[in-house]
Design a protein around this nucleic acid. Structure first.
Lengths: 149, 149
DNA sequence: AGATATATTGAAAACGACTTTCACCTTCAC
DNA sequence: GTGAAGGTGAAAGTCGTTTTCAATATATCT
């Protein structure tokens, strides 16, 4: 999402939508995050400098970013969604620790290749995919696999 | 989930829980489904023969089944969860058509192997994983990729 | 700049899936 | 059978997210 802010404004213009201070502030913080973040967390961050901006507007802006192809919604646990900036290239997937809740990212070209093959074997035209692996991370294994919650 | 009903009753016994008519009916229909199903759909099915059984009890029973390792919760869209019977062996993943909403299952041992390798490279002890691919299925491509919703 | 049309805002209410509460009802070990 | 421990359905409550609505900001036209 290099130059994400300009891309976002172009998107707004194209759709006859307006550039506002709130959207600017939200998009700026979202880009700074550089990692998946929940709407609530993003709101907290934005509200430090702009206390008047509501959570509702954060949700709306995230949906706009998604529409612009600049953010992607993810759902790891059973509860809230996370949003992550769409960086120029390179898809990544996630390793999620069920003990500490930590989320680790990785990329693997071979897996991607196999996925494409499976998809075309089934006659699918692939648009997106996600791979999530759940387990115990190195740290938690050392610590003795204590469970959270 | 061959012999799922017996396994479930064993689980109940082990935990000091009781076998009830409602649970029997719900588990029986769940096993018959043999495929992912939402709580709501399962309830609808069960209610045909047992109109008094509430959706609440279906949710509770599904959580029990999950605890017993006989069902697995999945979340494809952004809305409801699906539950699928855990069959004895063989993990499968999903191809989801964004046009018609259809869900197709597949298995691929090579991908599984690569996943395990990635996990161990990161020091992870894998417990579970899920792979979902989104795209347009063969039928919808023929039909001209109309969008649902 | 001022007027005008249209989009945007925050607060509160609504939403949908799911969970909890509660008073009554089963189940099962004795 | 009896009684303690669980289970039940209905209604109320949660939680994350979306919608509604009256007030306000932005872009465009003059």
């Amino acid at each position: 999402m290099v130059g994400g802010e300009e891309a976002f404004q172009a998107y707004l213009g194209r759709r006859g939508l307006k550039k506002t201070r709130q959207r600017d502030a939200i998009v700026r913080e979202f880009v700074k995050a550089r990692r998946h973040i929940t709407a609530e967390d993003l709101h907290r961050t934005v509200a430090r400098r702009h206390p008047a901006i509501g959570l509702v507007t954060v949700y709306r802006t995230l949906r706009l970013l998604e529409g612009a192809g600049l953010a992607k919604e993810r759902r790891f646990g059973k509860t809230e969604s996370c949003y992550e900036p769409v960086l120029g290239v390179g898809h990544h997937d996630h390793l999620i620790c069920t003990a500490c809740g930590g989320i680790f990212e990785f990329e693997n070209v071979e897996i991607e290749g196999l996925q494409d093959r499976v998809a075309s074997q089934h006659g699918f035209l692939i648009q997106d995919h996600k791979l999530e692996m759940y387990g115990i991370c190195r740290e938690c294994r050392k610590r003795g696999e204590r469970r959270r919650r």
